[in-house]
Design a protein around this nucleic acid. Structure first.
Length: 784
RNA sequence: UGGGGGAUAGUUUAAUCGGCAGAACACCUGACUCUGGAUCAGGCAGUUGGGGUUCGAAUCCCUGUCCCCCAGCCA
């Protein structure tokens, strides 16, 4: 790497990190947690894990692995009404199956109930929580709406003693469900509804699957979660987007109870997959109402379902890697999942022959009693694996019905009347006669002849285009049941229901097709449950647990891409075209919120209104320039103070509007590290041409960082020294010499590289150069 | 309607904090092939609209539009 490129670089960050990993990396570098990385996967044991959870598991466990940390498995079991040990076990099985290990870091929020309780008493003692005796409806009423602030509950000002007494009696079981709740003293006027005195505890006289009847008050998620994180020393608490508003309570709770460095919450977008639903409630409904055979129905997006379907952990992890992590709400196409699974299976599923819809073939010139055991490799040439089995060829065979066509299209490469085709691992055959059922007209048999010289020989030019089709010997074939699965739902987004319909109305009636009379070659007779194969030209299959030794059952995991069928016009099941963007109004009228607000301020403040008029008529500023400058007296005064240095109005206005406003947004005028006079001086330097605008940006950046007055910065960085032509030419030459490939690319037409060259030269020249001159020099040398 | 978040090829996403808009999946073409698979080569295609600052904007400023989340004693 060249000196020029490495100069002025930030410490190198790992490339292509998602935003969460970037935060983790930064925290490691800054030593925020002394280099510790502790994440957690916090399922509630009230349902089975699904592919969406896999994304979260891969994220949390993946980060721990990659950054030398640990990931806890914590059951967030704070609601006794829905939780069950069955789910705990299923979840552990699924996480382990996905290939992740929590070692000894298995936790339950229910183990923290006592600590949680003690912390709650602390909050009460500190006046930060109170017992509210409003009923559910009352609480709702007092909470207000998104547009109206809430009102304080009549019980909000109870004394600490009374609160403590009531809370202890709540624990002691003196009150029925719903009589009281413990609430945080938040802000009832907060625009964030979550902060309007969130509930911390409720009374539930319900047996908990782990703590039994030890408790009759249970903590709420918003309270239990941050405290559990803190108890475990979690550093990065990663959850999905819908908890963004809850982060305020998360921080409120931990600020009250813990000190930095404490856990912090970060949110990412949950996975949405086309043609499936991902809510536990809906999946539970499918199971309970028997739309599927159970949580592990191979059509379910649950981990258990995908496992039974035959998906591999590696494939699922590959999928998670490919979809990335971001905050954008998105829907991932089903093919992306399927493609990841295929990618994984391609190198690990041996190829075998199966005939799903058999059509009888008789080789009329093949000796009736003869059996040839032909060598058939399990792997295609491009996969670096060895191994083969022998497969028997006899006079009577079965081939796939779909591999024969009575009236083939021009690009047909399989069997047709009078045509030839290769039997995979065997001979070429020619179809001489088609036997049909005289009544139904159905094709019942093909009478063919085989070419005894074609075994193991390359195809002749004439036969080159033929596909090698799969087949089985009629005498040796093993009858099996094959279950063909496809999408559970018939529409892309079953959550988006029409008026009066439910997601269940969009179930795909053909999501399972059972073929009871499929045939596989004898090598598969002893296949074990869980073994995966590629049925050549069909797809990947796995032996289902329903299989009996005498009756194998195969599930189709995923089909092979079919370039032939893909080319055929099919009913369009694709996505709707993107909606036309609504035509936008032109930007003439400034009616937006901020601008609107400033107009209101001016209407109420004649001095500001007068300044606005002055700026536009006397100073010659445009309305767009004058507007942001006259939104408050402070900004206008700042602008005029800068102007008093003698700089031009236009320059000062641009600097204030484009640069200073940014600082003002988060720090306010008082937080500024430089004065209006400083900015005026900077503007004058630009006006007079003493420094280039590029240099001015550098100076401004330093001013904003508190490096002092412009003149001082200029002197320190030597930005007033002019670069003479000779020096410029030499820097340009040097930069070009460092980047020979780029120069070649530019010369062969990639002129967009000019910007990159300019940037390099500007950097090398310490921004002392004038970009216009730089570009002139660059063009001259590049085109020389 | 208050608040919080989001918008980059058809889709999912990168872009070293102002300097080459890059990839994967999908699609198309070709090569190869005893799988119409895989692989290889090539191609199509993008910064939410408008304005501004700048030599240069996906990135900074102003201003629109669209989408998601929040008013459970669920998580």
């Amino acid at each position: 790497m060249s000196e020029i490129e490495t100069a002025d670089r930030q410490p190198k960050r790992r490339e292509n990190l998602d935003f969460i990993r970037e935060i983790v990396q930064r925290d490691i570098e800054s030593g925020r947690y002394q280099g510790r990385v502790v994440t957690r996967f916090p399922p509630e044991p009230n349902g089975y894990l699904h592919i969406g959870h896999a994304k979260s598991i891969a994220l949390n466990f993946g980060i721990a692995e990659e950054f030398g940390g640990v990931c806890h498995l914590r059951f967030d079991d704070t609601n006794p009404e829905t939780e069950d040990m069955e789910y705990v076990e299923a979840i552990m099985r699924d996480v382990r199956w996905l290939g992740y290990d929590w070692h000894d870091k298995l936790f339950f929020a229910s183990d923290y109930y006592e600590q949680l309780y003690q912390f709650a008493e602390q909050l009460i003692r500190e006046g930060k929580a109170y017992v509210d005796s409003l009923d559910e409806e009352g609480i709702r009423q007092y909470r207000g709406t998104v547009t109206e602030p809430g009102r304080p509950s009549p019980y909000r000002d109870r004394s600490v003693e009374e609160n403590l007494d009531l809370f202890r009696r709540m624990r002691a079981g003196e009150f029925p469900d719903g009589a009281h709740v413990l609430r945080a003293k938040g802000d009832l006027a907060a625009p964030n509804m979550k902060m309007r005195d969130p509930l911390l505890y409720r009374i539930r006289h319900t047996t908990h699957y782990r703590t039994g009847d030890a408790w009759c008050i249970y903590p709420m998620y918003d309270y239990a979660h941050p405290v559990s994180d803190a108890i475990e020393g979690i550093t990065h608490s990663i959850c999905t987007l819908e908890f963004e508003n809850n982060r305020a309570i998360y921080d409120w709770t931990l600020d009250a109870l813990y000190e930095e460095p404490r856990p912090h919450q970060y949110e990412f977008a949950r996975l949405n997959l086309d043609y499936t639903v991902m809510s536990k409630r809906k999946l539970l409904q499918l199971v309970e109402e028997k739309y599927v055979s159970g949580w592990d129905d191979p059509r379910m997006p649950t981990i258990a379902g995908l496992r039974r379907r035959g998906y591999t952990p590696e494939g699922i992890r590959l999928f998670c890697q490919r979809i990335g992590v971001d905050k954008t709400n998105s829907r991932v196409r089903f093919e992306v999942l399927e493609d990841a699974i295929r990618d994984d299976l391609n190198t690990r599923a041996p190829r075998v022959m199966a005939v799903l819809r058999p059509l009888k073939v008789t080789l009329t010139n093949y000796p009736p009693e003869q059996v040839e055991w032909l060598d058939a490799p399990y792997w295609p040439r491009d996969i670096d694996k060895a191994g083969s089995r022998r497969t028997p060829l006899t006079r009577e065979l079965y081939i796939e019905r779909t591999d024969f066509s009575l009236n083939p299209p021009v690009d047909w490469t399989r069997l047709s009347p009078g045509g030839e085709v290769r039997l995979r691992h065997a001979y070429f055959i020619r179809c001489d006669e088609v036997v049909t059922d005289p009544i139904s007209g159905e094709i019942v048999e093909l009478r063919c002849t085989y070419d005894p010289d074609s075994l193991g020989r390359p195809a002749s030019a004439a036969r080159k285009r033929s596909t090698a089709i799969q087949w089985v010997s009629a005498a040796h074939a093993v009858p099996v049941e094959v279950r063909l699965y496809s999408k559970l739902f018939a529409v892309e987004n079953p959550d988006m229901t029409e008026e009066g319909k439910s997601f269940k109305d969009y179930l795909n009636p053909h999501s399972i097709e059972v073929l009871p009379n499929a045939l596989v070659e004898p090598a598969l007779a002893a296949a074990a449950v869980g073994e995966r194969f590629q049925f050549v030209r069909h797809g990947y299959f796995i032996v289902d647990p329903d299989a009996q030794p005498a009756r194998l059952v195969f599930n189709r995991i995923v089909e092979l891409p079919d370039a032939y069928n893909a080319r055929q016009p099919s009913p369009d099941l694709g996505r709707k075209a993107k909606a036309e963007p609504t035509p936008s109004s032109s930007g003439e009228a400034a009616v937006g919120s901020l601008s609107e607000e400033r107009a209101r301020v001016r209407a109420a403040d004649s001095w500001l209104a007068e300044r606005y008029a002055h700026y536009t008529s006397v100073l010659g500023l445009s309305a767009e320039q004058a507007d942001p400058l006259t939104g408050s007296r402070e900004v206008a005064a700042f602008f005029e103070a800068a102007l008093a240095t003698g700089a031009t109005a236009r320059t000062v206005a641009n600097w204030v509007n484009n640069e200073v406003l940014r600082q003002l947004k988060d720090k306010g005028l008082d937080g500024l590290t430089f004065s209006a006079a400083d900015l005026g001086e900077l503007a004058k330097l630009v006006d007079s041409g003493a420094v280039t605008t590029a240099a001015a940006k550098t100076i401004y950046a330093e001013m904003a960082a508190g490096a002092g007055a412009p003149s001082e910065i200029v002197r320190r960085r030597g930005l007033d020294q002019n670069l003479n032509q000779e020096e410029l030419q030499s820097i340009v030459a040097q930069v070009l010499a460092e980047l020979p490939e780029k120069v070649a690319a530019y010369r062969s037409g990639k002129t967009s590289l000019l910007g990159m060259f300019t940037g390099q030269v500007m950097r090398a020249a310490g921004n002392k150069a004038d970009p216009k001159q730089v570009q002139a020099a660059l063009k001259q040398q590049l085109e020389a």
